[in-house]
C-alpha cells in the first residue's frame, strides 16, 4: 500500500462516517505531509469536515507532519496510532496541538484502540 492509497482509504472512512463528519464540521484545515526519507509530498485537507487528499504541496498549510513514508502509511491505514511514533520522536509536527489531537482522535474513532 502506498501513502496515497492509505490517505484515500482514510478519507473514505471519514467521509462515510456521519459521526466524524458532524464532529469535523467546524474543522477546516490544510495539512502538508512531508516524508523525511523520500520527500514525496502529500496533502490532506478538511473543508468543514469533508476530507480530501492528494500528492504534492498545499498552499499555506495549517499543519506540517514529517515522518518516514512507511510510518505515515501505517498511521493513515490504521496499522499504527500516531501517538506511538510521535512519542518516539519519529513523527514531528508543526502546527497547533489541538489539530494533532484531532487527527489522533480521528484514527481512534475509525480504527478503535
Amino acid at each position: 500500500m502506498t501513502l496515497l492509497d492509505a490517505l484515500q482509504q482514510f478519507v473514505t472512512e471519514c467521509n462515510q462516517n456521519a459521526r466524524l463528519r458532524e464532529m469535523n464540521r467546524d474543522w477546516t484545515r490544510r495539512i502538508q505531509l512531508d516524508p523525511d526519507d523520500t520527500h514525496h509530498h502529500h496533502w490532506l485537507v478538511s473543508d468543514a469536515g469533508e476530507l480530501s487528499a492528494g500528492e504534492g504541496l498545499v498552499k499555506n498549510p495549517d499543519m506540517l507532519i514529517q515522518a518516514p513514508e512507511d510510518i505515515l502509511t501505517q498511521i493513515f491505514s490504521g496499522q499504527m496510532t500516531p501517538t506511538e511514533p510521535y512519542n518516539a520522536g519519529d513523527l514531528l509536527v508543526r502546527g497547533q496541538q489541538d489539530d494533532m489531537m484531532r487527527l489522533d482522535i480521528l484514527t481512534l474513532l475509525i480504527w478503535g484502540e
Binding site: 502538508q32 512531508d34 499555506n60 498549510p61 495549517d62 506540517l64
Partner: peptide, 8 residues
C-alpha cells in the same frame, strides 16, 4: 520542513 505555517 517548510516554514510557511498559517498560524503561529
Amino acid at each position: 520542513m517548510q516554514n510557511s505555517l498559517s498560524r503561529v
